[in-house]
Simulated scan of single mutants.
Amino acid sequence: MTVYTVDPELDLVLERNVDVAPELVWRAWTTPELLVQWFAPKPWTTTSCEMDLQPGGRCNTTMRSPEGDEYPNTGCILAVEEGTRLVFTSAMGEGFRPQIVEGGFPFTAVISIEPDGNGGTKYTATAIHADSSAKKQHEEMGFIEGWGAALDQLVEVAKSL
């Protein structure tokens, strides 16, 4: 496993313990039919998800705003450590093909899932940015609030499994 050191100048981190078993958190993250149920913070929705869980595989979602506007996001899976870590990026598309991110900024997400020792999960989502302006833009878009709300929704979905 590659160890990543968080750079506070470039990265945003959401870390929480949730009362759902790690295997259910993993399942909610890696099953497209489940991911569309929780991935966008309400009132936004995720209308589609394609995920090929292997390095170089696609990681594509489409989000819909409350006004009905759709925002496709294409990306690439960088690493899969079954049950514990998922790494994907918007900087590349399927097959590690570099891509231009229209109207936004590229970032890499590292999702870490660990047992918390009490039957729940220590959940860490890290968004890695190329420069401080991208980090600031992501922060101002509401990274902590949005990803936190999405995590609450993930927990609801996982508890129903």
Rank of each mutant, 00 (worst) to 15 (best):
I113G: 05
P43N: 05
G103W: 05
N118V: 02
M63V: 08
R16G: 01
E139V: 00
D52Y: 10
A127V: 05
A127M: 15
V3N: 13
E156H: 07
M51G: 02
P41R: 09
F105N: 08
F107E: 00
R27G: 04
M51E: 04
T5C: 06
G142M: 04
F107M: 13
E139A: 11
E67Q: 15
S65I: 04
Q54M: 11
R27C: 05
D11I: 03
S133T: 12
L86D: 12
S65R: 03
E70A: 08
T61W: 13
A149S: 11
R27V: 02
F96C: 08
D52A: 14
G117M: 09
M63P: 01
K135T: 00
C76S: 09
M92G: 01
A127T: 09
A130H: 10
V25I: 15
D116W: 01
D52G: 06
F143S: 07
R97I: 14
T74Q: 09
V101S: 03
T121P: 11
M51Y: 03
D19V: 01
E139N: 07
Q99M: 11
T74V: 11
P66Q: 02
V13W: 03
T74D: 09
N73S: 08
N17R: 15
N73R: 00
S48Q: 12
E67P: 00
V18H: 03
L86V: 10
M1D: 10
E102S: 07
